[in-house]
Design a protein around this nucleic acid. Structure first.
Length: 532
RNA sequence: AGGGGCGUAGCUCAGCGGUAGAGCAGCGGCCUUUUAAGCCGAAGGUCGUGGGUUCGAUCCCCACCGCCCCUACCA
């Protein structure tokens, strides 16, 4: 079935027939190469024209045609291979009548193989003097416009394959993403962590506060949630004696889409027995330094128009200290930590802040959308997010979270209203969230029940009693943490939208694209197709 | 969801009450070291969709659709 742009598709089909008429197979099977394009640049990039003439280097390479300049009885093209370009020179005298006839039928986007030797053109560019030309794949659709590239951002995500062909930056982001994940796995593997895979389809919602996607299993006739977090399964593994585990995989949350949120996002979670959150803060600093250094080659990286310093120790503030430190002075006297700790203190501060914020069109401290009025803990969290979070550009730990917003974290021994929990903020983004895990099964069950009672779409409907049972068998003192990988990659690639670092982000279906046109098979044949 | 912006040739854009323009891509021709190759020629458009105002709308008005940005919720 032809695709738009139709005239070009039809034109290329015509050329395809002319190529076949020449006796050339436009989709042949294999083409062994002597070098990759990067290898050629690496090995021969410094050879001079005279050196290449004196000692000819035979090469056989393949790639996609990214530029094409015909000059009558000769022509130049740039081939792209492994993200790098190499020019080739095709001359009637060198490739013969049939070879040149084929060359004249090539288009931008076609994939070819050439064999010949290296030389330098008059302008000094390293080039392959082509002696034989092989068409490897005819492209029936054109590449994006040659110097604007794919300017429509939406098209860059929908047609990611084109984006990757023409945008070195985009290609680089995903190569770096892969490299970051390798570094990350190495970091944990070296420290004795076991990488595991836990279910992505959960019968019971849990491990985070978020609105889920719901799906259905036919044979078992049961609804399942796409997981919002792997947390409860990973801790079951710690109960099972896997003292150090980690998982890197997708979470699914049925919530908004914006510059830093996608419904499907990648999360690292790791758990470590016999530790607490202070140890994780230290470990996380080491991890970030290792990842930043390996990805960027420096500990002072540029993000937008600012520098982020990963070399210095990360700032550490309690949540209450954060509110105090960034309290806008125009909103009245700065509340003290003591005042925020006292019953009703957060409410008093929130009312004062809201009065000022409303008058100045600034973010309000929102009241939680639940039946009961917000608790002091919830208000403390809301105050922090409104007041301090946007300011946290340099790596900063915020720790000691209220128990009401930390249902899985262990309370502090000296203050049961707060938990041993921290979050790491960089560039105004929440990147990591860790805590000493609550391992008292009775306290955990009470907190789960409170959540269920509280209600709301993002709350579990039932208590995960098997998890409580697992805790009842004894979870050693354990610290655990989650790190948002997409945001981490954003940071380390100077990307400012999460869609830049996800290969195929979720988008609204393209306008005018009718799913019905793709002839959905009826249910019976669909079933059959899946039985493999 | 609310506020702002955008939508004209395949792509990037100009035009703005009098009936459509450029560059690039594509097509034909010339060109055996070019590189945003060049030169000549022809082709390409329901000006996002629907309504309204007007003698006349791509242009003004209204609605809708799509995309982007900001604000609110979530990592």
């Amino acid at each position: 079935m032809p695709f738009e742009p139709l005239d070009q598709y039809v034109q290329r089909q015509k050329k395809l027939e002319e190529i076949r008429a020449l006796g050339v197979d436009p989709f042949p099977h294999r083409f062994p190469c002597s070098h990759t394009v990067p290898e050629i640049h690496e090995r021969y990039g410094s050879r001079s024209a005279t050196e290449l003439e004196a000692e000819p280097v035979a090469v056989r390479i393949a790639g996609r045609i990214l530029s094409l300049r015909l000059h009558g009885k000769a022509g130049f093209a740039h081939l792209s291979g492994q993200g790098e370009r190499l020019q080739v020179y095709v001359k009637l005298d060198a490739v013969g009548e049939r070879g040149f006839a084929l060359f004249r039928l090539l288009d931008l986007g076609d994939i070819i193989g050439v064999s010949g030797h290296l030389f330098r053109t008059r302008t000094g560019e390293l080039t392959v003097w082509v002696e034989a030309l092989t068409l490897l794949t005819k492209a029936l659709l054109p590449l994006p416009e040659k110097w604007h590239g794919l300017a429509d951002v939406d098209q860059r995500y929908r047609r990611r394959y084109l984006d990757l062909i023409v945008s070195e930056r985009s290609r680089g982001i995903f190569l770096r993403r892969a490299q970051i994940l390798r570094s990350l796995r190495r970091f944990f593997d070296e420290r004795g962590y076991v990488e595991v895979e836990t279910p992505m389809m959960h019968p019971i919602l849990g491990g985070a506060t978020a609105r889920p996607f719901v799906t259905h299993h036919n044979t078992l006739d049961m609804d399942l949630y796409l997981r919002i977090a792997p947390e409860l399964y990973l801790k079951r593994l710690v109960v099972g004696g896997f003292n150090r585990v980690y998982e890197v995989n997708r979470n699914f949350r049925n919530e908004g889409i914006d510059a830093i949120h996608q419904p499907e996002f990648t999360m690292l979670e790791f758990y470590q027995a016999y530790s607490d959150y202070t140890e994780l803060m230290d470990l996380t600093e080491q991890l970030f330094r290792a990842l930043v250094q390996e990805a960027c080659g420096t500990l002072r990286i540029t993000y937008g128009d600012r520098e982020i310093d990963f070399a210095s120790p990360f700032a550490r503030l309690t949540m209450r200290q954060g509110i105090v430190a960034y309290w806008p002075e125009q909103a009245g006297p700065v509340p003290t930590e003591q005042a925020l700790k006292a019953p009703g203190g957060p409410l008093e501060a929130a009312l004062r802040y809201n009065a000022w914020a409303r008058a100045h069109d600034r973010p309000l401290v929102e009241e939680a959308e639940t039946a009961s009025p917000p608790s002091d803990g919830e208000l403390t969290g809301a105050l922090f997010e409104a007041i301090a979070e946007p300011h946290l550009f340099q790596p900063t730990y915020i720790y000691d979270f209220p128990v009401e917003i930390s249902p899985l974290a262990k309370r502090r021994a000296d203050d049961p209203s707060i938990t041993e929990r921290f979050e790491l903020f960089v560039a105004g983004m929440e990147l990591a969230n860790g805590f000493s895990e609550l391992n008292d099964p009775e306290d955990q069950e009470r907190r789960f029940r409170a959540q269920v009672e509280k209600g709301g779409e993002e709350m579990p409907k039932v208590v995960d009693m098997d998890y409580i049972r697992a805790l009842s068998h004894g979870l050693p003192p354990t610290a655990g943490e989650g790190i948002g990988i997409d945001r981490l990659v954003m940071l380390l690639t100077d990307s400012h939208a999460i869609r830049e670092v996800i290969l195929f982000p979720l988008l609204r279906p393209e306008a005018g694209e009718k799913p019905a046109d793709n002839a959905p098979p009826d249910e019976g044949s669909l079933e059959k197709e899946r039985e493999v």
